[in-house]
Computed example of a mutant assay.
Amino acid sequence: MKEIFGMGTSAADHDVDTDSTRTGNSDTDLLVKAVSGDSVDRDGGAHQPRSIAIRLSTVVVASVIAALVAGICTLAVLYTGVKGDLADRDSRTADAGRAQEVATDYAVGASTIDYRDTKTWFDELKANTTPQLAAKFDATSPQLEQILLPLQWTSKAAPITAVVISEANGVYKVNVFLNVTSTSVQTPDGVQTTVTYSLTVDRNADWKITDVGGLDGALPVK
Rank of each mutant, 00 (worst) to 15 (best):
A67T: 09
G71A: 12
K173N: 13
T200N: 00
V35K: 04
K33L: 02
V60L: 12
K2N: 13
K156R: 14
L78N: 10
T181A: 05
A205D: 10
A127F: 10
K126D: 09
V201R: 00
V185E: 07
L125M: 13
T129K: 06
R89S: 10
A218H: 03
G24H: 09
I113Q: 02
K222R: 14
P49I: 03
K173R: 13
T161Y: 12
T183H: 09
Y172C: 01
H14Q: 15
D27G: 07
R92I: 03
F5C: 05
P150N: 04
L56H: 13
G81V: 08
V164S: 03
E124K: 13
A99T: 00
S198V: 04
Q100Y: 01
T129D: 05
K136C: 10
L30M: 08
I165R: 14
L219D: 07
S36G: 02
V60G: 04
T129Y: 05
S20R: 13
R92E: 06
G24K: 11
S111V: 01
V163N: 15
S39P: 05
G214F: 03
D41H: 00
D90Y: 09
E124V: 06
A107W: 00
K33C: 01
K126L: 10
D41Y: 02
S39L: 14
D27S: 10
L215W: 11
P49D: 04
A46R: 00
D15T: 10
T120W: 10
T187S: 12
A11L: 12
D105K: 11
G6I: 03
D90W: 08
P188D: 02
T193E: 07
N204D: 04
C73D: 11
